[in-house]
Design a binder for these strands. Sequence first.
DNA 1: CGATATTTGATATGGTCCATAACAATTATC
DNA 2: GATAATTGTTATGGACCATATCAAATATCG
Lengths: 173, 173
Amino acid sequence: MTVSKTAEKSSEKPADAAKGRKDAGDVQTEALQLGELSEQLGYVLKRAQLKVFENFLRCMASLQLTPAQFSVLLLVEKNPGRNQTEIASTLGILRPNFVAMLDNLESRDLCARIRSTNDRRSHILVLTDKGRAVLARAKKLVATKHEARLNDLLGQANREALIGMLSKIANEF
Amino acid sequence: MTVSKTAEKSSEKPADAAKGRKDAGDVQTEALQLGELSEQLGYVLKRAQLKVFENFLRCMASLQLTPAQFSVLLLVEKNPGRNQTEIASTLGILRPNFVAMLDNLESRDLCARIRSTNDRRSHILVLTDKGRAVLARAKKLVATKHEARLNDLLGQANREALIGMLSKIANEF
DNA sequence: CGATATTTGATATGGTCCATAACAATTATC
DNA sequence: GATAATTGTTATGGACCATATCAAATATCG
């Protein structure tokens, strides 16, 4: 699988490598054959994921939100009153790695940690007003730019089918 | 998005967090609501990708091949006579990062670098006999364990549709 | 009650992967 | 033949992931 992130920055999209070769008219200088690779689920899954994240970042450039940060804001909004451990583990983030992430969001005044009165060990997470506003704008950008793009490419029905299959894999594989 | 790799190692699968809470019979202690997150393409794509890679690694445990290594062997087999730059860029691997990867495969006698006689700067990549043998076994494992699992889950037709859509995203998004 | 174990957020640390700059050797270009 | 470009490589830094460990707070249980 393998696919890095800036392969296209190097001015040649993957699978159109082999540009600068001694073109003494020899036919051998052609694009490589992907072969069975293009049927490998993992390979195409990873490539698609990178493309989608890349597009997401472009759509969110004005708000400076990464996919991970967006998911945190979404989850905190949907689940008020939960603590760091609960939010992090639901997203598959390990608690130690969640600390810096929250530090970032909190420093930008998008969310806040509140000491719980019931259990003074835990920090309840909430969105700030600014956090709610930014999230609302983020959702609109995702809907109008990101998801719309996917609908153009696959069609509404296929898009839903795709998400359904991916969910099934994520949950049952 | 976000999803780390060993979230399940911590004995609670994502989306079933919130186990150890003060269960004084209060209903509030429930699994979190994913909400719109479960409809986010990037989120579900990333989760599915992690699961697939994880399963791939388990299937390949006996051969100690990562998805990336498998893709390199596949591509070298399909495209004999190509150099490092061509193989790496086709896979979206940056040349500097490909060096250590090849060092590994070469140290295990799975492939070899050969100085090109035409262009003494470049290293032609070839599979060794052992490399071909290992790759053949790897393909069988992938087919009988990895892909078979996916067919059981989605069905043959859906599996092909899924790969088609992911390819489209990877290439045209 | 009080000793012990557990949980929570946090720090420190190491690994892996990704990305950029720079270099020597070789080849292309003009 | 001087200059530019390419190839493989090294060095380096960043992002992300994972583990161990800690203090504070809480839970558990004798």
